[in-house]
Design a protein around this nucleic acid. Structure first.
Lengths: 200, 200
DNA sequence: AGAGATATATAGCCTTGCCTATATATCCAG
DNA sequence: CTGGATATATAGGCAAGGCTATATATCTCT
């Protein structure tokens, strides 16, 4: 094919990282061989080592990608919502709909990466940055909501977003074990409580 | 030694499960060999297979133990606290103090087991039951608090406990990546928000 | 005390999978 | 068009570790 070497390389790299993210999330890092990742990317393990040097290097690349990826996603969905209920619901759905859709890929990979980051200091920094970004996105959204509503926020927005992010993650964890225990309605109510908008 | 066979067996089993819990939590299931577990328990891998049949069987035993263990712990700490601030703080500390103390064993094992349960339906049930128990413990405590204070709860207690558990888990996750992002004070405020006691 | 049962230890087979060394395909420069 | 550079594929070495088969220690019961 008439593609430049840089294009070929970039394409392969992207395929490998995507394949790795899918497999690491669904099966776990240690249950996935480099050959399996390569096969899913229509490459061979040679390409993995040419690009990342080691399986660990591949994990690092996945985490780096993950670090910046989802913050943007959430922003899109949030901006689309209009009234408050729709907004809190959208917030929850950015997590829970993915949970249904892609075979739970989202939360599974999040937790897989969290565990690796918790065990390896050099990865921790990256995931910390990811959480920071997400919190800032959310904090920004909250400020806009308040401004639109003409009211002001009860607490500093980045503290609120820490709490809301925590709630979303924790509800996701419970929901994955027992879906009935976490209704959409309950999630929305929880978020509104944290935002200081009454539990009504 | 003059111990009965049942005692010997029970002792070995307990040692193995404890050792496995510690190692699986800190290093991860797949990074720990059966030999390593056995060595930590002052036994050999033969004992592991005599007791559990496989490494997977050992994981199952750890999860079964874990299922019932911590709910009781939390209850103790909660009953000791007197006023509301102390109570919410105790609630948070049951998670966060362990996070410091035992080298983060608690949260790490929790997440390790969550991932395995998320991937294996036969394990999921067990972790779901664990969460149920914890929620019920907490719900019970909330009802007592309300009764003591002479007030009634704004929402059904088991819904509140779902939200509070979610918050605690999520804050633990963030805290492990970036301790500064989750102060004790913030955690307490979040809990009180969810309990409908104002964000003050 | 001694035979049988039970609990744990020892030794090694065999698979898996990470990685390296090398070969081949694809592209770029002159 | 050709030689060098780059990107990917192929093949196999090598270690780790799960598991089994068997041996040994410990207990139980008469």
């Amino acid at each position: 094919m008439g593609r430049t070497q840089l294009e070929r390389k970039a394409d392969t790299r992207e395929r490998l990282v995507r394949a790795a993210a899918e497999l690491f999330g669904s099966l776990g890092f240690h249950s996935v061989s480099t050959d399996a990742v390569a096969a899913r990317a229509d490459r061979t393990s040679g390409a993995v080592y040419a690009h990342f040097g080691s399986k660990q290097g591949l994990l690092l690349a996945v985490l780096e990608e993950w670090r910046s990826e989802t913050a943007a996603d959430a922003e899109v969905e949030l901006d689309a919502a209009t009234d408050l209920d729709a907004r809190t619901e959208a917030l929850w759905r950015t997590l829970s709909s993915r949970t249904g859709e892609r075979g739970d890929a989202w939360l599974m990979l999040e937790m897989e990466l969290w565990l690796h980051a918790a065990r390896q200091p050099e990865l921790r920094q990256l995931l910390a940055e990811r959480y920071d970004e997400i919190r800032h996105e959310m904090a920004h959204a909250f400020e806009e909501w308040a401004a639109t509503a003409g009211s002001s926020l009860a607490s500093p927005p980045d503290e609120m977003s820490t709490l809301v992010l925590a709630l979303l993650l924790g509800l996701g964890l419970q929901r994955r074990m027992e879906p009935e225990s976490v209704s959409d309605e309950l999630a929305g109510r929880g978020i509104r409580s944290l935002l200081g908008l009454g539990a009504g």
